[in-house]
């Protein structure tokens, strides 16, 4: 398992559009992805799960990936969140 801690930077956080971009990108990987936020574990391949967690700008999260392509997946996920999930 690989993991990294980071902060959500885009204004609206994991809103419908950003959440969808994130989930659709993660679905391309075989590994499992978990986001830990406020002590809760969120399935990073589920848009309902991700949206329901209400992760907004400034949220401190940890991303954990586990599986055959975990390193590549984690890097992609972290880059995506750091770059603002396709938003400003």
């Amino acid at each position: 398992m690989v993991s990294e801690q980071l902060t959500v930077v885009n204004k609206a956080g994991f809103h419908m559009r950003p959440a969808n971009l994130f989930v659709q990108t993660m679905l391309k990987f075989q590994s499992n992805i978990t986001i830990v936020f406020n002590g809760r574990e969120i399935d990073g391949k589920s848009i309902m799960n991700v949206m329901a967690a209400c992760m907004k700008q400034g949220a401190e999260i940890e991303i954990r990936c586990e599986g055959p392509d975990e390193v590549e997946m984690l890097r992609t996920a972290v880059d995506l969140v750091r770059s603002g999930l396709g938003e400003e």
């Binding site: 419908m16 559009r17 391949k45 848009i47 309902m48």
Partner: peptide
């Protein structure tokens, strides 16, 4: 239209 595309994303959620 986006509201509806959003519904497609949600219903395809494997978790739900």
């Amino acid at each position: 239209a986006e509201i509806l595309s959003g519904q497609v994303m949600m219903v395809s959620d494997p978790y739900m």
